Amino acid sequence: MLRIRRYIIQITKLFIFLLFILILSSCRENNQKKEITEIIKSWQGKEIIFPEGLIFTKYGKDTIEYNIPVSDYKIIMYVDSVGCTECKLLLNRWKKFIHEVNLMANDTVPILFFFYPKDLREISFILQQDSIDIPVCIDKENKINQINHFPSQQDFQCFLLDKQNRVIYIGNPIRNEQIKEMYLSAISNGKYSPSVQSSGITRIKVDQTNFDLGILKKDDNKKVCVIIRNIGKLPFVIHDVKTSCGCVQINYIKQPVAPGNTTEVSLTYHADKTGLINKTVSIYGNMDISPLTINLKGEVVIAEKNK
């Protein structure tokens, strides 16, 4: 009876999740809505097959002996070779999430990364940089994707699996707070309850949301500051700040901002590639315009050699 009850709860959450996705997608094209819905439906309950001969490593370079354990739950993340690996991964957030899962489940829920790499050195570097020491699979032949045919959209290349490796939820808990809550609720058998971060919505005023970084030379750094004033009646709290690229470093104070006071979000752009700059930063909090979107524009050029 308990297993049936859990299954009913999961199905109910799935329909709530589908409704949530449809609401978020209301401003998109109808065919995109349909595509997202079909992805979720088609993967619900689907078994993930782990091919033989997978090689696990530490930090993407040192081979280790590791067998995927039989556990009530496991989380797998597939990372393909398309685009900026560091931008897609957001390992600093994964590190916090892994810690939260381990505390909740007493280290009984394995979190597995499967990389189909275009640059093995890059993966090794970013794993060491963020001290991600869990076993990761470097799947040079892309075996796991060839068997399972994962969705091409990066937001749907992460899965919460049950004991039989069937998909309970699909979606990236690092990029979507509601998906994260659903993962943690399932793992804790419904005991997880997200903390209340604010007692209500307040109003804010921002002087500038569009920044022209101008012409930068490659490897230059450019810093701008977003000043946010709390013009409401409740304390203002920044819950999270997300960027479209790892080339933007973010710093902000996490303490509540009293009505009438200001807080500052510092954004430092590192010009790692030449070309036009078109980056966005999303600031989430208990304000009337959430997320607050900050746009960074400009151009990076090759530095002239001294004549």
Rank of each mutant, 00 (worst) to 15 (best):
K205F: 10
C225G: 01
V248I: 14
P235E: 12
R229T: 13
Q249C: 08
K242M: 13
N210Y: 08
G246L: 00
P235Q: 12
D220G: 07
P259S: 10
Q208M: 09
I250K: 05
Y269R: 04
V224H: 04
V265N: 05
G214D: 01
D272M: 09
I231Q: 05
T243S: 15
Q208D: 09
L234N: 08
V265L: 02
Q255V: 02
I228E: 06
K218I: 15
I228S: 10
G214K: 02
K254E: 12
D220W: 07
P256E: 01
K222E: 12
N210M: 04
I253G: 00
I250E: 09
K233S: 14
I227G: 00
V265C: 04
H239C: 02
H270E: 00
I238F: 04
G260V: 09
T262K: 15
K233G: 05
R203F: 06
I204N: 04
C245E: 03
H270L: 05
I227N: 14
F236K: 01
K222H: 14
K205T: 10
R203P: 03
D240W: 11
V257D: 04
K233I: 12
V237P: 02
I277W: 04
K205G: 01
T263F: 00
G232Y: 06
F211Q: 13
G232R: 05
G214W: 02
V248Y: 02
G275I: 12
K254S: 12
I227F: 01
P259C: 12
K223G: 03
I204G: 11
V241D: 10
G214I: 04
I215A: 05
T209S: 11
D220C: 10
I250A: 02
G246Q: 07
K218V: 15
V241S: 08
N210E: 13
C247K: 11
L267H: 00
Q208V: 14
Q255K: 12
I277M: 05
V248S: 01
K217V: 04
R203H: 14
D219G: 00
A271P: 14
H270M: 03
K218E: 15
T209L: 13
K218Q: 15
T263G: 07
N210V: 09
L276I: 15
N251C: 03
F211H: 11
Q255N: 13
S266I: 15
Y252A: 00
L213F: 05
D207P: 03
A271I: 11
I253E: 13
L234D: 03
T243E: 07
T274W: 01
D240I: 01
T274L: 04
I231K: 06
N210F: 06
K222D: 06
R229S: 08
H239Y: 15
V265I: 15
K233Q: 13
H239Q: 12
K233N: 13
Y252K: 08
H239P: 00
I238C: 09
Y269C: 10
D207Q: 11
T202V: 07
V226G: 06
V237Q: 05
G260Y: 06
K273T: 15
N261Q: 14
A258R: 01
I238M: 04
D219T: 05
L276F: 05
T268R: 08
E264W: 03
N230R: 11
T262L: 03
N210G: 02
P259M: 13
K254V: 11
L267I: 08
I227T: 13
T263K: 09
H270G: 08
T263Y: 07
I228G: 10
C247P: 02
Y252Q: 06
I250H: 01
L267Y: 00
